[in-house]
Design a binder for these strands. Structure first.
Length: 600
DNA sequence: ACCCAGTGTTTTGTAACATC
DNA sequence: GATGTTACAAAACACTGGGT
């Protein structure tokens, strides 16, 4: 059996079931576990027939999306609405639009917005920048990372003041452009009309749905502020990530999915089929949400929206885009369904299903020595704060799934304290999750792997981080949990540019470590630092030689020689004297030095 | 050739550290 | 204590590459 207890998006267990191997996938995060259950368990189990029904459900829902879209966006048939945030200039009292730049389209047809100022009022005009001067004008906005500048009186306000203003409710929103399609099918940027504003302002919510609004009152967790930057500007709850209209549309979609339950149940031949089809609709709403919030922005270069999670963080976005769900362009329902259908087609062809659970990786419901191979891609130290970011989805999923997956969606928000990550330090974050927590938790997780692995089983672990600290705590955890490295391999992303190493940056590449179990009672040999260094240079020289035979070069060399050197390090207990200290940090630095020497 | 869902790169600002 | 240096990180910007 193959085990991945940090499944996340599920690429490892997906490949495993594609190979027809018995697979066990788990994740602590209920949002991830839900997607895993659908993709790795329910869809493969349902096969072609389920796939057909799912695709029909999604197609049927288009009518609902169209109806809700028309209700809230009016008769206009626009592709996107461009909004930006505003603040009141403390000097001239103008409502200043916060724009990082003025571009709408930087493709073959250049379009930008012009700010027309009269005394203390600013209005917008759309134009085609032609001259160099106009292009320069379009590239300059009203806000940089440091300050915002009023176009009327040129009075400057530092962003720290905007943060205070935001917390006090002093940041507003203004609609400054919209994108439509003309009769020839060309993209057309226009100024919004009175009707557009009226449609926005008259967007209202059914009183019966107000109970659903409460589920969005989840605070964005301050511990995760280093990935939730928008908190600093007063974006403090999940609810505040959405405009009124976006919230109304999404709540009606949620309600429509809830109302669809009975219909799906009646037309399903089993409880399992019902669950699969219902979960598919829930997950499809998640796709709509990432494009329908105040943190998805317009990519003028490609003329399409960027989702809130185009980076794994929620940053402050000054100029955002609102996509009507009933457009067939990016961000709309139809476009999302297109992608979902592809996924359904692919996965429904797989014959093997995985066993999915929502569990802490340090406490699995598996028997001792029952697993042949563990393949994991555990969290990379402080790189991604999965749980904090998941609250964006969790809050919407809770009312949808509290009946179907009651144990997974019981808490008010995504469980965070047990998650194996380090919270980056920030003056506003009181988080206790430091590197020691990471090492302890990683050790507990790896010890659990040691327990469930057969004696001749292997643990394959992917890891990457620029910080030496991140590697030290991983290595300590590996040592403490009684594993020893057998081999190590550098990983590249599929992008070509990553191969073009300009300099040796050893820790910049990720690696795969293959680990074997060692006897829990075994102990390491005592050795002096001096003796160890001698052995170390022998092993390193040997490892470099064999790596070079395989044409491994640059930063990859570090990763390639890591395993034999680490095995050596783990098997010895280096005596630490006042005159001769040799820490894990020294060991990694030496290793870096050795691999860098080769290319000096 | 274009669409689009991103990923990679550059710019800009900031904080920590080092030096005078 | 002031000033310079360096590393890092956010945000903006540029570009890729599969798919059609």
């Amino acid at each position: 059996m193959v085990l991945d207890s940090f499944s996340g998006g599920g690429s490892i267990p997906l490949e495993s079931i594609r190979l027809g191997l018995p697979t066990y996938a788990s994740d602590l995060n209920p949002v991830a576990a839900t997607a895993l259950k659908l993709a790795l368990e329910l869809i493969p189990a349902g096969g072609k027939e389920l796939a057909r029904k799912m695709k029909r459900d999604l197609a049927d829902f288009q009518n609902v999306a169209d109806e809700i879209g028309r209700k809230h966006f009016g008769a206009a048939d626009s592709l996107a609405y461009m909004w930006c945030r505003t603040y009141e200039c403390p000097n001239c009292h103008a409502d200043v639009p916060l724009l990082p730049n003025k571009w709408l389209s930087k493709k073959k047809n250049l379009r930008a917005v012009k700010l027309i100022t009269s005394e203390n009022h600013i209005s917008f005009e759309i134009f085609e920048p032609k001259s160099k001067l106009e292009i320069e004008y379009a590239s300059i906005g009203t806000i940089s990372t440091k300050t915002a500048k009023c176009p009327c009186c040129s009075f400057e306000v530092p962003t720290s003041n905007l943060q205070e203003l935001g917390k006090a409710g002093g940041i507003g929103d203004i609609l400054y452009a919209k994108l439509s399609i003309d009769s020839d099918g060309n993209k057309l940027y226009e100024s919004p009309t009175v009707d557009d504003l009226n449609a926005f302002n008259s967007s209202d919510i059914d009183r019966n749905l107000e109970h659903l609004v409460n589920c969005l009152d989840i605070p964005l967790d301050l511990n995760g502020i280093r990935h939730l930057w928008a908190i600093q500007y007063g974006v403090s709850t999940v609810s505040s990530l959405f405009s009124n209209r976006q919230k109304n549309v999404l709540l009606e979609l949620v309600n429509a999915v809830l109302l669809m339950k009975e219909k799906i149940r009646k037309s399903s031949k089993s409880e399992q089929e019902y669950q699969a089809r219902y979960l598919m609709l829930v997950v499809s709403l998640n796709r709509i949400m990432v494009y329908n919030n105040k943190h998805s922005w317009w990519q003028a270069n490609g003329e399409f929206p960027a989702s809130i999670f185009v980076r794994q963080a929620i940053s402050m976005v000054w100029s955002y885009v609102e996509v009507p769900i009933h457009t067939k362009f990016a961000g709309g329902w139809a476009s999302s369904v297109k992608w979902l259908n592809k996924i359904i087609d692919h996965i429904s062809n797989i014959d093997t299903t995985a066993v999915v659970s929502k569990l802490d990786a340090a406490n699995l419901d598996l028997n001792d020595k029952s697993v042949d191979i563990v393949v994991i891609d555990p969290p990379y130290f402080d790189s991604i704060t999965y749980a904090y970011l998941s609250d964006f989805f969790y809050s919407w999923m809770k009312p949808l799934l509290s009946d179907e997956l009651p144990n997974w969606f019981q808490e008010k928000s995504t469980p965070k304290s047990a998650e194996l990550i380090v919270d980056r330090k920030h003056k506003l974050s009181p988080s206790p999750k430091d590197s020691n927590f990471f090492e302890e938790k990683m050790t507990a997780c790896l010890m659990e792997k040691h327990r469930v692995l057969k004696d001749d089983g292997q643990l394959i672990l992917m890891y990457g981080h620029k910080k030496i600290e991140a590697w030290i705590h991983l290595f300590e955890a590996i040592k403490r949990s009684k594993f020893t490295p057998v081999s190590s391999w550098p990983i590249h992303s599929e992008r070509k540019s990553k191969f073009q190493h300009s300099k040796v940056d050893a820790l910049a590449t990720s690696c795969i470590l293959v680990l074997n179990k060692i006897d829990a009672s075994s102990s390491s040999k005592k050795i002096s630092a001096k003796e160890f260094k001698l052995k170390f240079s022998e092993v390193t020289a040997e490892a470099i030689k064999s790596a070079q035979k395989l044409s491994v070069s640059g930063g990859d060399l570090f990763m390639a020689i890591l395993a034999p050197c680490l095995a050596l390090y783990f098997s010895h207990d280096i005596e630490q004297t006042d005159s001769d200290l040799y820490s894990m940090q020294d060991f990694i630095s030496d290793l870096e030095l050795e691999s860098a020497k080769v290319y000096a």
